[in-house]
């Protein structure tokens, strides 16, 4: 139990996917312009991350390993992730069309979010058990959502700031991301 909690916190903060492992940077920069879009994007990505990791685990251990096809895992995981994203989009379109239009193009782009594929690959490479995979995926989702929400909140404020023309907009956002990454380095050495 303690180990699982440690894994959760370590994945969410110490080895944060975005700020420590630099995965999934495109949605991190692309959808963090507004706080509410960022939070819904974080939730959608968390949903996809968890489900895709679970399905990947199932397919890897029940189909690929017994047939000695582990080398197919990248292609197989991509198919699984694409299907999960498509299903998420259908669900969202049915439940909340307004959120669906608000997230627009970024929703299908979760498919190409490298954090999703990395999570599935890292989980099978580290030979985690099913329970550990779930916790690992939840930790990654938590870390991604929190960081995205924090970054969006910071960006909404720097947007209003009286920055020098050369820094206004994207440069300031990237500097902010760098400082956040430095701050997350502070978690290094906790647990792991």
């Amino acid at each position: 139990m303690n180990e699982l909690l440690l894994l959760l916190l370590a994945t969410a903060f110490v080895n944060n996917f975005v700020l420590a492992q630099f995965l999934g940077l495109c949605p991190f920069v692309g959808t963090s312009g507004r706080f509410d879009t960022a939070t819904s994007m974080g939730l959608a990505t968390a949903f996809v991350l968890t489900f895709a990791a679970l399905l990947s685990y199932a397919v890897y251990h029940s189909v690929l390993l017994p047939l000695d096809l582990a080398y197919l895992r990248i292609i197989a995981f991509i198919v699984i992730i694409a299907a999960t994203v498509q299903a998420t989009e259908m669900l969202l379109r049915s439940i909340s069309p307004i959120l669906h239009t608000a997230m627009g193009l970024y929703l299908p782009l979760i498919t190409s979010n490298c954090a999703v594929l990395a999570l599935a690959l890292l989980a099978v490479d580290a030979q985690l058990s099913l329970l550990q995979t779930v916790v690992y995926a939840l930790g990654a989702s938590l870390g991604f959502s929190i960081v995205l929400a924090l970054f969006a909140a910071a960006r909404e404020r720097t947007e209003q700031a009286d920055a020098p023309a050369a820094f206004a907009g994207v440069p300031l956002a990237l500097v902010t991301a760098g400082i956040m990454s430095l701050a997350f380095m502070g978690f290094k050495g906790m647990g792991t």
Binding site: V63, L64, L67, L69, V79, I80, A82, Q86
Partner: peptide
Amino acid sequence: GVLALLALTAGGLL
């Protein structure tokens, strides 16, 4: 075969 089956299953499910 495995990849085709996987893709077909995913497509059918969708």
